Amino acid sequence: MKLPIYIVDAFTNTQFKGNSAAVVLLDTWLDDGVMQSIAIENNLSETAFISIKGHNAYDIRWFSPITEIDFCGHATLAASFVLFEYYQVTGEIQFSTDKVGDLFISRQPTGFIEMKFPNQEPEPVLDIPSELLAGLSKKPIEVLKNRQAYFAIFETEEDVTSLQYESEALKSLAPLDVVVTATGDKYDFVSRYFWPANGGDEDPVTGSIHSGLTPYWSKKLNKTELKAYQASFRGGELFCSIVGEQILVSGQAVVYLTGTIDI
């Protein structure tokens, strides 16, 4: 069996920046174990598998090297980029998912890809887990959580960029991951994302968590349009806004590799 594969750097317009995702196009789903093995072999933060349902309609699933993931933004951007760039798809793409409903994606005249995500605003945590505090080198000023992660809020960008973390302590918070965030110097807000239980130590750029970061910072900053930066070693820019009950997350992408998997 030969399967087309693409590796795309998402949330950047420069190769080797942003977050890399593999995209594999299927006629029908493979066995879950085979898809997990492909993700392990790719050894990227995510591999997106997409299967066509109809005109501009696809099912999508995401696998890290460790497990299947409920929701991944950068691999959704990468998959959309592949469809727009290599399969001449025009108009709005609909991705169906098991856990977060339907995602609607469009390519803007600027070339940016805009993704409509559900609003996953976090709620305050009164009883902060000791493992969270033990896993971060600095104490946050506030902690919240949503279905995906704990949100550790800090005062300054320097607090976020200089932060050290302890993976084993954060791993014990599974199934939740951890995002650390603060207002930025050049951006409205910055963040870093740790997910040792589900994918790896630090994710380069995490589109999905911005469905929670955006409503949080929108209220704090009294803005509905925000420019964000994920301050990982690769770094990535995200443009976020709120329209009604939806969170819009936009970014750029650039291809790194096109090829074929032989199974």
Rank of each mutant, 00 (worst) to 15 (best):
A10P: 11
F11I: 08
F11M: 11
T14A: 13
F16K: 09
V23L: 09
D31G: 07
V34I: 14
A39L: 10
S45R: 01
T47H: 06
H55K: 08
N56V: 05
S64R: 11
S64D: 11
P65N: 06
I69E: 03
I69G: 00
F71S: 08
G73T: 09
G73A: 09
T76V: 02
L77F: 08
V82A: 10
L83K: 04
F84L: 02
Y86K: 15
G91Y: 09
D98W: 03
P109H: 07
G111Y: 04
P118I: 01
E123D: 10
L126C: 07
E131C: 05
L136W: 05
K138G: 11
K139R: 11
I141F: 09
I141R: 14
E142A: 15
K145I: 04
F154E: 00
L163E: 11
S167N: 15
A169D: 04
P175C: 02
R192E: 11
R192D: 13
A197Y: 03
G199I: 02
G199C: 04
S208V: 10
H210T: 00
S211N: 04
S211L: 07
L213F: 05
T214S: 09
T214R: 01
T214K: 00
W217H: 03
K219W: 01
K220P: 00
N222H: 05
K227Y: 08
Q230K: 06
S232E: 03
R234Q: 08
R234D: 11
G236Y: 07
F239L: 12
C240A: 13
E245K: 15
L248S: 12
S250N: 06
G251T: 07
L257N: 05
G259R: 14
